[in-house]
Design a protein around this nucleic acid. Sequence first.
RNA 1: UCCCCAGUAGCUCAGUCGGCAGAGCAAGUGGCUGUUAACCACUGGGUCCGCGGUUCGAGUCCGUGCUGGGGAGCCA
Length: 460
Amino acid sequence: MNRNQIKALLHADHPQTQVLIKGWVRTRRNSKDFSFIEINDGSCLGNMQVIAGADLFNHDQIDRLTTGSAVSVTGSLVASQGKEQQWEIQAHRIDVISMAPESFPLQKKRHSDEYLRSIAHLRPRTNKYGAVFRIRSDLSYAIHTFFQQRGFKYVHTPIITGSDCEGAGEMFRVTTLDLNAVPRTGGHVDYSLDFFAKEANLTVSGQLSAEMLALSLGNVYTFGPTFRAEDSNTRRHAAEFWMVEPEMAFCGLEQNMDLAEEMIRYLVLYAIENCAEDLELFARFVDKTLPAALQNIVDEKFVRLPYCEAVDILSKSGNHFEFAPETGQDLQTEHERFLTEVHFKKPVIVYNYPKTIKPFYMRLNDDDLTVAAMDVLVPGIGEIIGGSQREERLEVLERRMDEQGLNKENYWWYLDSRRYGSVEHSGFGLGFERLIMLITGISNIRDVTPFPRTPKNIEF
RNA sequence: UCCCCAGUAGCUCAGUCGGCAGAGCAAGUGGCUGUUAACCACUGGGUCCGCGGUUCGAGUCCGUGCUGGGGAGCCA
C-alpha cells in the first residue's frame, strides 16, 4: 500500500476505510483509554490527528511516543469528534519507525528565529520553516510557469566563470592549486598551473552569458545560484543566493520595466492563490499587515520615477535624512524606504540613474549623463530587482569600458555580440530570496534559505 | 568593514546598590481527561560565553576575545 499524503487526506470529501500515512510526531496527548497523536509529513502545514487506542498491540510504546519520532500509521479516515479538525485517523496499527530521544531540540512551543538558525538541519520540521520552504518550491515553479507561458527559454549559464571582473562585487576564487604550496612566477601566482590555466571564480551574475543567448534565442531567463564574497552583514544579504535573470532581445527599458512589474505581480498573485494556508501562518505569526501588503502589490500600479525626480522628491520632502539626497549619488537605504514606505506606499521603479554609479554595460542615454538602468524597490525589502537596457553600440560600450578601467581583451566574446548583428536588448535580476521575504513577511534572508551562507557561517 | 545591543537551566527570559542562582515552558514521575501549544501535582536540572583585572566578596564593575542580533556600506 502506498502512503497517503496528509494534505490529500485533510482535503478528503468522504471517509476511507484504509489509509496509510508516514510522518513525524508533533505532539501526543494521552487520554484514559487512548492517545491523540498529531502527525506531520511536510505535505502541508496541517497535522493529521491519529487516535491510538489501548487495543494496539504496542500501546505501551505508543503512550510514550515523543515529539520528533517517526511513525507509520494505518487506519481508517473518519470524521473527527473534535472541533479543531474535520478528519482524523482511527489507527489500526502504528509502527514506530524511529523513536526520538528527549534530547530532540524542537519543543512544543515557540522558538526564537536565532535559536532555530543554530539548528538549521531540524527547523524545516517546524510549522513556520516548513511553510517557508514549501513556498520556495511553489514560487520556483511559478517562475518557470511565468516565463514558459510567455515563450521565454530557460538557459543555463556557467557557475564557474573566467571573467575576472563583472563589476558586481567580490568573487569567490575557484582553484585546485595547493594553497599550502602555491606556484609562483616572479612573485605572482602562476595560474597557468591551475585547473583552467587562468583565474576562475564563482559567478556573481549570469547576465553576460544570458545576453549571448538572448541574442540568439530571443527571450531567455536563467534561474540559478549566485555567489558574492562581500563581507555583508545585513538581514537581506547572503553569500550564496538564487537569482532569476530574464534577458530579452529587441527590448527597451520601458518593456523591461513592464516585464519586471508583471512578473512580481504574477508571483505574488500566484502565492495568494496557491499558498493560502501557509500564507495565513505568516499573517498570524510573522506580519499582521501581510495580506494587505500583498494585495497592495497586486492591485496598485508600480510608480515609475526617473532618478532625478526621486532626488527631487527626497530633497523637498522635509524629511531629515542621515545622508542628504544629492544628484550623482546613489540612493541610500533610508531614501529607498522613504519612497516606498512613506511617500508612495507601494512599489517604485526608479530609472535613468547617473552613469557614474552604474556598470559599463548599461545603455547610455542621449543626455550622456544617465544610463537606462532601473531598480524595483518594494516596501520592507528595498531593492528586489536591478536591471537595465544593455549598451548595444560597440563604440559606446568600448568607451564606457575604458572609462571604468576594464581590460577589453577579457571581454572579446561579449564585444563580439555588438559586432555581429547587435540589437537593442534588456534584462534584469530578481533576488529570489528577497521575493520570498516579500511574500512571507519574513525579515531576515537567513530564515528563507534552508542552509544560509553568510560571513563566518557555513556550519550546515 | 564600521556603529549599537545582547550572551544566565534544554528553550524564553528575570536577577534591585557588588552580598545564598530564580521563574515560565520543556524533560522525568504520578494523577485526570475526546484532547487541541491539553490540564493538575511533585522531582531533577547551572562552565551565569571565554580569558584577564578590581574587590573581603563579581552573574553584576573594568579590559579583551568569541558568538549572536539590529543598523550602515556593498547589492539581488
